[in-house]
Simulated scan of single mutants.
Amino acid sequence: MTQDFAGKVAIVTGGASGIGEAVSRDLSGRGAQVVVADFNEEGVRALVDELSQRSGVEARAFKVDVSKPDEVEAMVGFTIKEFGQLDLAVNNAGIGGKSAPMGEIDPDDWHKVLNVNLHGVFYGMRYQIPAMLKSGGGSIVNMASILGAVGWRGSAAYVASKHAVTGITQTAALEYSSKGIRVNAVGPGFIKTPLIETSMSDEAHAGLVGMHPIGRLGTPDEVAAITNFLLSDAASFVTGSYYPVDGAFLAQ
């Protein structure tokens, strides 16, 4: 079995930075033709320009708001128009939302988080799956979180969205595994990103690190490694599963 993606076409949402960027870079480096989709049009175009120059394979940029089904449908249509097929998809786009206890959550904030984190994943699969069926099958990875398995004070909307992502992942796997489409979820712990590095005090950062028995935060490349393994033929018997990448956070 191989993790070579030559001849494969992939979509990565939230692909302009962080985990999505790492996934896109790795897929492209292994030979996939990648549509990197993100709401940040400038960032996604800069990344695609770089990938196209370095990897020798084709990459395309697509600006998308995953909370809008017509834009997600257009993203899949664009991929088919550009590359003729769809084999792989990573539904990674997500937001954190405002922190508030359950009894004080603004309903608008609640819906904003669910619209991106849950509905965006649903819209992705809704339009990716028919395209993959026409291409003869494929593999999807939905980005959940360790908070798809436990609660977290002040983040009810985020927690609800990520629990739901694991549920719809399992359901889609049951429905389409016999038709050649595998669907899995990845649950990152807290990942070292510029936002975390610059927005937290040293004390708060140390506290966050201390929640992970491994003694550090994860990196985007570490999440990309398991994500792209699940996309690959090396994981051909793996579907309907949830894989934490969390430095033993959930083992406590």
Rank of each mutant, 00 (worst) to 15 (best):
V121R: 03
V113L: 05
N92I: 01
A248D: 15
T239C: 11
V186Y: 00
G84N: 13
P130M: 12
Q170R: 12
I146R: 03
S52M: 00
F39Y: 13
G43A: 06
V223C: 01
V150P: 09
N91D: 07
V186M: 00
G218F: 05
E197D: 12
V57I: 13
K162P: 02
F39W: 12
A10L: 05
M125A: 07
T239L: 10
R60W: 10
A37Y: 04
M102P: 01
K8P: 10
A22H: 00
G187L: 13
E21R: 09
G180N: 13
M1E: 14
S17E: 05
A149G: 11
L118H: 03
E41W: 06
G97I: 06
L114Q: 08
M1A: 15
Y127S: 11
K179A: 14
A59Q: 05
F229R: 05
P213V: 15
K68D: 14
G189Y: 03
E58I: 11
L195S: 12
Q33R: 15
G120R: 06
P188I: 04
E203R: 09
I129P: 08
R25D: 00
K162I: 02
W152S: 13
R30C: 08
A100Y: 02
T227I: 02
A224P: 00
L114T: 06
H163N: 06
R25C: 01
M75L: 15
I226M: 11
N91F: 01
I168Q: 01
G84I: 13
R153Y: 13
L208C: 07
L88T: 00
V48T: 04
F39K: 11
V150Q: 10
G137I: 09
D202L: 09
A61H: 01
A93Y: 04
L208I: 15
D202W: 04
I168A: 05
P101L: 05
E104P: 00
A164N: 03
A46Y: 01
G136K: 12
A37W: 04
Y123R: 05
M200F: 14
A251H: 14
V116A: 05
A16F: 03
A32S: 10
H205Q: 10
D106N: 12
D38M: 00
M143K: 03
S161L: 02
L133E: 15
F229Q: 08
M200L: 15
V186H: 02
I11M: 00
E58Y: 08
A234N: 11
G189M: 06
L51P: 04
G148F: 04
A225E: 13
A185T: 07
G29N: 14
S52V: 01
E197C: 01
L250F: 13
N40C: 07
P244R: 10
M200P: 02
F5G: 06
R60F: 11
N92T: 01
Y158H: 07
V66N: 00
K68A: 13
A37D: 06
N142S: 10
L27P: 00
K162A: 01
E50S: 08
F122D: 02
M75T: 09
P101R: 04
A46T: 09
V76N: 05
S135K: 13
A59D: 00
V186T: 02
R126E: 10
E71R: 11
F78K: 07
S177M: 13
R30T: 10
R45A: 07
A22D: 00
I191N: 01
P194A: 09
G247D: 10
P101Q: 03
